[in-house]
Simulated scan of single mutants.
Amino acid sequence: MSKIRVLIVDDSAVIRRLLEKFLSSSPDIEVVGSAADPYIARDKLVQLKPDVMTLDVEMPRMDGISFLEKVMQHMPTRTIIFSSLAKTGSETYFRALEAGAIEIMEKPSIDVSQSMETLSAQIIEKVKVVARARINPIKKVATPGTPVQKSTSTSLARTTHQLIAVASSTGGTEALKVFLSGMPANIPGTLVVQHMPPGFTKSFADNLNKMFPFEVKEAEEGDQVVPGRVLIAPGNYHMELYRSGAYYHVKLHQEAPLHSVRPAADYMMKSVAKFVGKNACGVVLTGMGKDGAEGLLEMKKAGAYTVAQNEETCVVYGMPQAAVNLGAADKVLALDKIAGELLSKISAKDAA
């Protein structure tokens, strides 16, 4: 196979040299060029046609996100954002994702607590995954200009007869918007594990809450799972379901990462299989790795209806592919068809 061609865009000569050193240590990667600002990068994109671009946010003459928006319009390129703002500025994080970044990482530092070898291995792995990712495979869902009116139904006082469990990772922030846009105000109680760094899941949930007629919130210990509510697992916490009388609640914990992630969807889905069984639906959306595959299989064995997103609409067909390979998915569907399929199955179960 040909090498993955990478263009490094950063105004810091130190960072450019560090990234080049890391990436060049892999026999599968070739650094074909570097640029100190977006205007130089623009010319090199046209000239070199790299497979992957690494991009800083704070740069002279034009910020990285504005540049990425232009790149994705005129010369779509798989992009990893490396920025010191990725850790502290959640607005920057989400703007980068919406602009088309596939991965966002904190900018490597000389004084990092982890070893250079570990950091190098992480960056190389990210580049390899991003090189296989699809560019802009999903339709963006516009944020409404005026606040969405929430449902005034009394659904929160009722028990949850049906429940949806969703796993997503790379590309999932936009995929979840598409999925949730197909759901009604009285959406069945829904649990979501989206792999995100600590501190960002609350901002993500708050943003979704403004977009849809149902409640979306970062899960808190003991939260009840009810119609009209979507709970998103907090970054760095696993989320599981338990039953108390006629009601379902969530518990949070910090057991060791599973599949190198915390939260892990397998924890959540296996608990849904145990306590909800056939009254649940499970979904695995776009993402790298295999988290959610085993949990989805347990849900299917417990009688739940299970769906995996198809390869054509995934940014990264890792998690859904792992689920399909395990035989965990009853159906494989395009992203924009999943919500309707689940609602149809849930309506049939309610009528039975």
Rank of each mutant, 00 (worst) to 15 (best):
V141A: 07
K140Q: 14
A256M: 12
M116T: 13
E20N: 15
V31A: 04
L85H: 05
A167E: 02
M72L: 01
H238V: 07
D350I: 12
G182A: 05
I232Q: 04
R134G: 06
A323E: 01
T170H: 05
G64R: 01
D10T: 11
K49D: 14
P188F: 10
T160L: 04
F179C: 00
G303Q: 03
I232H: 04
Q309N: 04
V71N: 04
V193M: 09
L241I: 13
E341Y: 11
S244R: 13
A304H: 05
N310E: 14
A41M: 01
T306G: 10
P198S: 12
Q122I: 11
P60F: 03
K49E: 13
V225T: 10
M319Q: 07
I187A: 07
D291P: 03
V141D: 03
K274D: 06
D51A: 10
K301P: 11
E91R: 14
A233H: 05
K70A: 13
L68D: 01
S26C: 04
I40T: 13
E98T: 12
I232N: 02
A96Q: 00
I80E: 00
V166C: 07
R61T: 08
S83I: 06
P137H: 05
V57E: 01
D10H: 10
A157K: 10
E312A: 15
V6L: 09
V250M: 08
L258M: 11
F214H: 06
I15T: 15
Q114G: 12
F214P: 02
Q47I: 06
A219K: 06
V46P: 08
D266P: 03
N207P: 05
V272G: 02
C281S: 14
G145Q: 11
A165M: 05
L252Y: 04
G228N: 08
K251H: 13
L326K: 11
T170C: 03
V32G: 02
M116E: 13
R229L: 10
L191M: 08
K301T: 14
V148G: 03
S169F: 03
D266Q: 05
G327R: 08
K44I: 08
H161S: 12
V307N: 09
L48T: 09
E174N: 12
M72Q: 03
N209A: 06
T118V: 14
H238Y: 05
I8F: 07
L163G: 00
I346P: 01
K345H: 14
L342S: 01
A96L: 02
E117R: 09
M299F: 03
A329G: 14
E30D: 15
F204T: 02
T146E: 10
V32W: 00
T143H: 06
D330F: 08
M319R: 07
D11C: 12
S153D: 09
F94P: 00
V276Y: 02
L7D: 08
I164F: 03
D266A: 00
L97A: 07
K270Q: 10
K177C: 01
P234V: 04
A308K: 05
K70F: 05
F22H: 08
Q162K: 00
Y267L: 12
